[in-house]
């Protein structure tokens, strides 16, 4: 196992970034961002094979797509701390004339982002297209993607899921942030997803579950196991069980902080629970 203390420190710092970013502009989505912090930290610092610098085509390296674009705070923080753009730029999140739009976009040329997302349900198709391009280019690197569980209510996902298995797109690892919460409440209350594992399997995917999606060692182990499952004729889905709002106690186990920013007092508590490790932006 790698030096996970450094990754845990990074995750704590990313959580600080997330709550500070959304607090400053009194908007944004901290809940899902906090729940996926370990995933992003692991993916960008331990799992993916990446070039230094950024080019849109991503030839010869692994490529990631964020489909549930509203968790942009965690994406931006991890990209910045991986060196894609200056960490100080996190100060501009959601401000006018910023590259850090409310939802990620290529439009302002932010390094690290390859597709706009925000309108839900589109990222799986895009990720599959990029996976097909890798195959055409004889590039044996992988495509990673992240999707909200509630996002799977969008029908386009199931078009893509059907396509991927039928066409043996086996160079993709699609992870579902399985926190069972969405804006209006729990997924079970809003529109139940049923047996997600059985659904993916029925569509012809190999499925792996990460039971502790907020344990960085479990996430690394799970993603590496998923990586070993690629190249076998089937697309790979990872059902990653997470807690929305993880790491800030009053934001956990509720959908209330899906898209709500903390006030000054709440920020202070959140920062107290996540002490500065690598330096605030």
């Amino acid at each position: 196992m790698p030096d996970t203390q450094h990754l845990k420190d990074l995750a704590t710092q990313v959580r600080r970034d997330i709550v500070r970013m959304v607090h400053k502009v009194n908007s944004g989505h901290p809940g899902g961002s906090l729940g996926c912090t370990e995933f992003f930290v692991a993916l960008y610092n331990e799992v993916m094979e990446l070039h230094e610098g950024f080019d849109m085509d991503g030839n010869g390296e692994d490529v990631f797509f964020l489909s549930n674009g509203h968790i942009s705070p965690v994406y931006y923080s991890v990209l910045a701390r991986r060196g894609y753009f200056p960490v100080d730029e996190l100060n501009t999140f959601r401000l006018i004339n910023s590259r850090l739009q409310g939802h990620p976009t290529t439009h302002e040329g932010l390094p690290g982002v390859r597709i706009a997302s925000g309108s839900l349900g589109q990222g799986m198709s895009v990720a599959l297209g990029a996976a097909l391009a890798k195959k055409l280019n004889n590039d044996n690197h992988l495509i990673y993607s992240l999707h909200g569980d509630g996002e799977l209510q969008e029908g386009q996902n199931w078009e893509a899921i059907m396509y991927a298995a039928a066409n043996k797109v086996d160079n993709i690892i699609a992870t579902v942030d399985y926190n069972k919460q969405q804006i209006d409440g729990s997924t079970d209350d809003v529109l139940p997803l049923g047996d997600l594992r059985a659904k993916f399997e029925a569509f012809g995917w190999d499925v792996l579950e990460i039971e502790e999606g907020n344990d960085i060692e479990a996430v690394i182990a799970g993603l590496k196991e998923a990586k070993a499952m690629t190249g076998k004729g089937k697309p790979v889905a990872v059902l990653m069980h997470t807690v929305m709002g993880n790491g800030v106690d009053f934001m956990m186990h509720t959908h209330a902080w899906h898209g709500k920013a903390p006030n000054d007092d709440q920020l202070a508590i959140a920062l107290e629970q996540n002490p500065e490790t690598l330096g605030d932006y």
């Binding site: 799986m124 198709s125 599959l128 297209g129 097909l132 391009a133 386009q156």
Partner: peptide
Amino acid sequence: ANMIGLAAGLTI
């Protein structure tokens, strides 16, 4: 819908 997304991805 999937076809348009696949096309967008193929440009990458």
